[in-house]
Structure formats: C-alpha cells, structure tokens
Nucleic acid binder design. Structure first.
Lengths: 199, 199
DNA sequence: ATGTTTATTGACTCGTCAATCAACAAAAAC
DNA sequence: GTTTTTGTTGATTGACGAGTCAATAAACAT
C-alpha cells in the first residue's frame, strides 16, 4: 500500500482530522487514535509523522490561523478593487471585519478550535506565540487604515476593535445559532461610531 | 477525626481547590486526586460529596458566577450612593463595567476558570445554562440603564457592550500582565462613544 | 450499651491512552 | 537482485485516573 510522497498528504489529513475531531468533541480531550482513525490511518503513523499529540494540535492551530489570514487577505484585495476613491480606508477596515466573520471562520469546527486554542495558549508557549502573531497582525492591519482617519487615536481604537471581534466571536460560538452577518454588524456599527465621533 | 457538619465545609473546600487547581493547570485536564489533595482530603471523599468530577466543575462554575454577580451588585449599590442626580444611569452603567473588571474577577484562577468554562459550555448543557444566565443578567442589567438614555438602541448597544466585555477579558487573560484598569477603560470609552453619538 | 448516622480512607477495579517497537511491504537506488 | 529508503501497522508497554467498596471511627440517639 505504501505510495511514495505520502508524508505531506498524511500530515494534511491528520491536521484536518484533528480540527474536525476537536470540533466534534468541543475540547482538546481527544485521543490520537480518534484523530488517526478519522484520517484513515493507524495511531502509530500519526506519532510517526508528528511525534506527539501536542505537535498535532500546534499544526492544527497553524492551519486555523492560516485559513483566517487567507480570508482577511482575500477580503482586502476584493475591497481594494471595489472601493471608491476617498473611502479606501473605510472600505479596507470593513473588509478586515468582514473577513474576520467569514463563513469559513464561523464553522463549528473552526469556532471550537479557536476556543480551545485560547485555552491551550494559557499553558503552551508555542500556542501563545501563534496567538500573539494573530493579534499583532490584526492590530497592525487595523492601524494601517485607522491612522489616516483618526491619527493618534488609532492604537486605542484598534485595541477596542480587536477585543470586540474576539468577544463577538465567543458570543456567537456559545449561542446555538451563530449568525455571522449580525456578528459582523455589531463590530461594523462600533467602527462607524468611532469614525463619526472623530474630533 | 470525624466532626459533624463537615459536608458544607468540605464542599466549599473542594470548590475552592478546584478553581485553584484549574487556575494552575490552565485547563480542565486535572485529576480529582489533585483537587482533593489541595483541599486536604482523599479523592474518595471528593467523590463521596460530589459524585463525579463534572459536578465539582459545575459547582466551581457556579461559585465563579456568584462571585462575579456579587462584585457587580456591590459596584451598583456603591454607585447608587455616590451618583449625582441626573447621571444615575450613566453612573450605574459605569459601575457594571467596573464590576466586570474588578480585581477579583481578574485573578489568574478566575480568568482560567472563565476560559475553561467557556469550553465546557460547548458540550455540557448545565454549563451552557449557567453561562446563559450570566449573559442574560448582564444584558438585562445594561438594558435597564440604557433604555432611559438611548431608547430603542438599548438592545443593540447592550449586545455590543457584553461582547466587548468578554473580548477584553480574553485579551487581558492572554496578555502576560492583565491590566484591569486599562481593560475597563476600553469598555468605558466605547460606552461614552455610544452615548455621545445618540441621535 | 447498643444501634444508627455521618465522616473518612486505603486498596482495588477497570478502563484508557500516549508513545514505542519490531516487523512487514513496496518503491528507488545501485 | 540486493540494499536502502520510505511507508505502515499490530502488539505492547507503562502509566495514570475515575469511580467503587469495604472497613474504620467518631458522634449521636435511645
């Protein structure tokens, strides 16, 4: 059965299976055997390629963050194409927010993954690092378009927006029926208020 | 050794130990034996009084929510005493926010407990119920003082404030040095913006 | 005194699971 | 065609942990 060049395929399958398994269980309390079975292989092979359960989780977290990043980047380039001159910054800010609440980031497994990776980040240095990267990139993206609009208040507003995005995410995750549009609406509304009230 | 009337004392000790143990571990992946040892008894006794690990966690969650509720109630009555006439509602709203970021709710164990209870609420119906109670009470508290100030916009604004409180909480939890004052400041700032911009 | 209720634990059961290893299979290299 | 590299797994190890139980002991009731 061994086909050559299996490593990348196996790794990807395991990462996908890990995200799905955590999504189903709702917690990181899942076994390597469950993940491996879902990925169609033995648990020994999972250990062979990743070395430990922890490494599988970290790879899954990288995948989640990477998907999120792609979502935001996509929304940003779409916005750049569509935006009327003079409103580019507003349009980009809205794109970042919409990207954060894209359907993909809002699937059940993704939400479960995020929640559990928050918990993982409390104890695992690498997980914490990855989450810091995410937060810094978001902050920096927001600042880039806020500074031209509100100057010195950019940092403060970006912090608020970042926290609001996270908070709305969790609210939606815990409500039975996450409504991505409404969630994004709350954040967009907050942005409007901040921009309206600029001195 | 058996002194009579030990049950309530033992239960309280176990709840306290559970919160501390989860706080130290940063996850719910702790053993009944660890909790029991910390509470100064055998794991058998912990099972005797609570029946299962799950029940211990739920009791701990109730305790955390109860402490939070007390904090907010305290801040509200203090605000009622101090507030100048005509600003009562603003003062009460600020009190709710400050109560949410009281030092007590911001200790390491409390933050760990909150994060992990969010995760628990994904799978455990009783945990979800408790979290819903918390969210509803917060929403209702906020609405009570927002309605006189902003009328129909109250519900929308209360949702935003609730999500922002949760989000800021998590940001602070994941930053090494949670700064309760700064955290409360972000939410208070958001409130001011919403009230300033009232039509 | 004697029986009942409450408190308490050590020892045990039964299961689970991460990680390892020896062994087998197929492709590639030489 | 044999050796080496890559892929793969069943079986095993070693540890740990939730929940049970029988047994002990102190207080209380009568």
């Amino acid at each position: 059965m061994p086909k050559l060049g299996a490593e990348p395929i196996r790794r990807a399958a395991l990462v996908k299976a890990a995200i799905e398994t955590v999504g189903d269980a709702g917690s990181l309390d899942v076994t390597v055997a469950q993940i491996a079975r879902r990925a169609g292989m033995s648990s020994a092979l999972a250990h062979h390629y990743f070395g430990s359960k922890e490494r599988i989780f970290l790879a899954a977290m990288r995948e989640i963050l990477s998907l999120y990043g792609a979502e935001v980047r996509g929304a940003l380039t779409a916005a750049a194409a569509a935006a009327v001159e003079g409103c580019v910054h507003q349009a980009r800010l809205r794109a970042i927010i919409r990207g954060s609440f894209a359907p993909g980031s809002f699937r059940r497994e993704a939400i479960s993954a995020w929640l559990n990776f928050y918990v993982l980040a409390r104890t695992n240095p690498e997980a914490r690092r990855l989450l810091t990267v995410y937060q810094r990139r978001l902050q920096s993206n927001l600042m880039h378009d806020l500074r031209p609009l509100v100057g010195d208040r950019a940092a403060e507003i970006a912090s608020g927006l970042g926290a609001l995005i996270d908070g709305v995410y969790i609210r939606a995750a815990l409500s039975g029926e996450p409504d991505a549009v409404q969630a994004a609406g709350i954040v967009l509304h907050h942005l409007d208020r901040e921009l309206e009230c600029a001195p």
